[in-house]
């Protein structure tokens, strides 16, 4: 059974069709990367996976639970689905450690000492054990994003979603974040990524989905998507501009 299963998902904002009959599966340990132009629907698709966005038709299932069904316990579901945002969304009034602990103590009702231990483990996993007492604004963008990954990871989700996690970062800060994401992928985490980092997508993905105008325009293993694109839209999208 796939961890994530999207079947015929559609969504419109008024006359604008942002998702148009999208279907794909993500299996345990798999890394699926969504690529495409701005406005192609990839971020919306990702945000539908943990119920941040609704859908008009179709189904999204996470580990057998229909995300958008009436009566679905989203509180429970969201503990299984971690998400990391483009702008980190850290809590500025809390220290790095408190950021990581909050979900554990409040949502998972973990004891303070246990949560602290988990925070210590995950923070060292992202290489920030020495920053536990710092406040987010005292960190670089790359460090903040790694804290956000740790915060998500600490909840021990079954699947992690990454929404353009390096798009807000200066080029020299991207690598430290991508390295963490790559290590997570290597550790067997099931992941869905939206990214504009084509080299990284090619390197880390098991499967690539190219979205265009709300539809899955082309999908396949990275070697084929990047090596032998079969549609002109994808070819144009992945060809580096020469000017």
């Amino acid at each position: 059974m796939p961890v994530v299963s999207v079947q015929h998902a559609s969504k419109s904002y008024g006359p604008l069709r942002v998702l148009d009959d999208v279907s794909f599966d993500v299996y345990r340990g798999q890394v699926v990367v969504l690529i495409g132009r701005s406005g192609s629907g990839k971020s919306t698709m990702l945000r539908c996976l943990n119920g941040l966005e609704g859908i008009d038709a179709g189904t999204v299932t996470i580990d057998g639970v229909a995300v958008h069904a009436k009566g679905t316990d989203l509180r429970r579901l969201r503990q299984e689905v971690g998400i990391v945002f483009q702008h980190y969304n850290l809590f500025p009034h809390l220290t790095v450690e408190q950021n990581v602990m909050l979900g554990l103590t409040v949502v998972k009702r973990m004891k303070r000492a246990d949560a602290q231990a988990v925070a210590a483990t995950t923070l060292s996993q992202v290489g920030l054990a020495d920053k536990r007492a710092a406040f987010p604004e005292q960190l670089s963008g790359g460090q903040q994003q790694r804290v956000a990954i740790a915060r998500s990871l600490a909840m021990q989700p079954k699947v992690m979603l990454f929404d353009e996690v390096t798009s807000a970062l200066d080029p020299e800060l991207k690598d430290e974040v991508l390295n963490v994401v790559e290590a997570l992928a290597a550790s067997g985490m099931t992941m869905v990524l939206v990214t504009h980092e084509m080299a990284f997508a090619r390197h880390v993905a098991d499967s690539v989905i190219f979205m265009h105008a709300g539809r899955i325009h082309e999908t396949g293993p990275p070697a084929r998507i990047f090596g032998e694109p079969s549609t002109p839209e994808l070819r144009q999208f992945i060809t580096p501009r020469t000017n």
Binding site: N50, R78, I83, V107, R151
Partner: peptide, 10 residues
């Protein structure tokens, strides 16, 4: 801030 916290299951 709302999205970040609701995504933790709050």
């Amino acid at each position: 801030q709302w999205e970040g916290s609701v995504s933790l299951g709050m």
